[in-house]
Amino acid sequence: MSILEAKNLTKYYGEGDTLVKALDGVSLSVERGEFVSIIGTSGSGKSTLLHMLGGLDNPTSGTVIIDDKDISGLKGDELCIFRRRKIGFIFQSFNLVPSITVYDNIILPIQLDGKKPDKDHIDNVIETLGIESKKNVLPSKLSGGQQQRVAIARALASKPAIILADEPTGNLDSKTSQDVLGLLKTTGKKYNQTIVMITHNDEIAQMADRTIRIEDGHIFA
């Protein structure tokens, strides 16, 4: 049964001569618990696709269905809340809030939802990711690998059904990349999460259950 489905997604930027088709009729489907990697070169439209899948950006046409819900029908805050509860994001540039501590960053989406963080679960995640000693420092004091672990911890903290990762290792060296991916894979299995990861690196893409190739806005399965 598919948890995430995209039908005929298109995203155009500009118009006339400067029209860029970032996505041009993309359809795909991801099963529950699957680890899928989307691979493509720079400019192939992979980040755009991920943003569409997560409802971070609006497609020009087409639909995205998450857990049987068509998210193109959701507006503004509705979409935001749906996303917050269903999807964990991991960004290439981490996107940590610089002014609050690591721990606060991790529990932020849960708090925004007005829920009590599941302390055991979060401690578990923090321990798994090996960042216990950094809990109370500001993100700016961490290395890139450490920041990405915090971002992963944040994505896992609310136990979302789906994790969308945009080049999670893009800013990391190869040793750290391996560590982070390993963690992502184990935690995914541990918490039975669906993971969609974007990368331009074949080697990394191979770690997934399935690989989808994207080029010039088109998908090649």
Partner: peptide, 12 residues
């Protein structure tokens, strides 16, 4: 924008 990507609603 950053706050929005991690799920802050417009109201918040």
């Amino acid at each position: 924008g950053l706050l929005k990507t991690i799920g802050t609603t417009g109201k918040q």
